[in-house]
Structures are given as structure tokens and as C-alpha cells.
Amino acid sequence: MSAEAVGLTLYFVQIATLGAIYAVIALGLNVNWGFSGLMNAGIAGFVAIGAYTSAILTAPNGAGQLGAFGWPLWAAWLAAMGAAGVLALVMGTITVNLRSDYLAIATLGIAEILRLIVRNEDWLTGGPLGVTPLARPFESYGNPWAPVLFLLLLLAIVAVVYWLAERAIRSPWGRVQRALRENEAAAAAMGKDVRNFRLQSFVLGATFMGLGGAMLAHFSKYMSPDVVDPLTTTFLVWVMLIAGGSGNNRGAIIGAFLIWGIWAATDFLTAYLPSDVATRAAYLRLFLIGLALQIILIRRPEGLIGERPPRPADGR
């Protein structure tokens, strides 16, 4: 392979790797929103807590922050899921039964508070400098094999998470979630503990987001506040799920790769523009993605592939 071909391959591998990370996060949101109708506006917060948990547990003691725990990667990733889950459990206990506006603003608030902590608690997170360096598995294989193997690992994780999510939605538990979303009163009348079921869904979704965050940290090989831009992350994942088809796990994955592909491709194009124009073009892209979301919501709310079994008509 020529150097150029290798470069191009690596570029696509990188896009696919981030696509896989977003797919895991989008599957998490699908559990929250697609299964149970929970409006989680703090995706970035759950991603960040997963990312920092794994970063701190695996990093050598770096620039003065907590570290040198020397955890193996797999254990750190499980811990990342656990940390996101615990955060969701605490916040969910308070908010999961409130109206969706409150859940949304509360989750948005968590993301904000986490951002403040990350920026200000240098002893824990390294502050603006972040936690560095982080190990990415397979690095010893060199280019192009290391990134390819890492991508394959992440794709395998996507498959496992997908399998878990599918099992969950097809189980009696998943049917209760759908019933709750469609008609809370009826489900409550069936004797289902509404709050507990919602909380379970909230926590399960958050653990997936935490895992996605851990994957992101080790892909970037360092973790700092800039790695997770709170709004773009949360917003992009929402667009991914809605474009792909909320309620449908396959839709979540397709949406993640598709939207990330478009996002990254426009990056690729703007790279050829003069730098000041390129910065502006990036904002234009944000605007267009926002517009696309509006058009999907109005014209095709079920997304590319809708949920099956189909939702009954809006119960009014």
C-alpha cells in the first residue's frame, strides 16, 4: 500500500472508531428515550464521568492529579459503567418520576456541574490539562494494525451492547417500559412500580453512555475538558438517535455512523478552506445539523427505520 492509501485508510478507520463510540452512546440514549421516553439532556455528563473514571483508574500518576491505580483496561471500563450508573441512580431517584421538562433540566444541570468539577478540581482530573497519557490497546502493533484492531474491539463492544439492548427490549421488562411510555396510567394500574422501572432504564442507559465515554478517553489517549464538548456531544447523539429511529436499536447504530460520517466528512471538506472560513463553516455545519433535526422531527418523526412493533397512534 502506498503511504497515501495508508493515510486514507487510517482516516476512515478513525471515523469508524468514533462512529462505534457514538453508537454505544446512542444505544444508551435509546434505552432512555426510545424504550422509556426519558428525556436525558445530560448525555455529555454521563460520557464524561465514564471517561474520567477510566482515565483516572488507568493513568500513571501524571501532572499531580490522582492516579497510579494501575487498573487493567477492562476493569476500568466496567468501573466507568458503574460510575455513570451510580450517578444516574442518584439523580434518577430524584427526578425520574417528575415531568419530562424537569428531568431534562436536571440532567443538563448534572452535565454542567460535572464540567465545573472537571475544570476546577485539579487534584482529581488535572483541571484544564486533563489526565494523560492514557493507554490505547494494541498500540504495540504499529500502524495500520493498531487502529484497525482497536476498531475491531470497539465494533465487538457495539455488538455486545446491541445484543444486550435487544435482549432488554424484547424481554418482559422491555414490554413494561414500552407500556409505561405509551400509557403510564394503564401500566400503573397493572401494578407495575412505575418509578422503579423508569429508574432501571435510566441507569442502564447511563452505563452505556459511561462505557462510550471510557472508550472515547482511550481513543483520544488523554482526557481533558475539551474532549467532551457538553452541548455538541449531547446534541449530536440526540440527532443520531432521532435520525436513525428512536426505539430501534439498529436505528441507533445506523444513525450514529451516518450522522458521525456526515459530521466528519464536512470536517474533511472544510480542511481545504482557508482557516478563518473553515471556523465559520464549522458553525454553519452545526446550524445545518440543527435544521436537519427539525425537519426530521416534523416530516419523519419515526426516523430512518421506525420502531417495531409500531407505536399505536398517538392516544388522543
Binding site: 419530562s100 421538562d101 440526540w238 458553525y283 452545526l286 440543527g290
Partner: peptide
């Protein structure tokens, strides 16, 4: 569903911000 409107509002927020940044 009112949650869909929340999501729409979220999108509008980003669109306005994008215009201002632009």
C-alpha cells in the same frame, strides 16, 4: 409529545448559537 418539543427546543438553541458564532 411535549418531550419532542423539548428536543426541538434543544435543536433551536444550537441553531441560534451557531448563527451567533458564525
Amino acid at each position: 409529545n411535549s418531550v419532542v418539543l423539548l428536543i426541538s427546543g434543544f435543536g433551536v438553541a444550537l441553531m441560534i448559537r451557531a448563527i451567533l458564532y458564525f
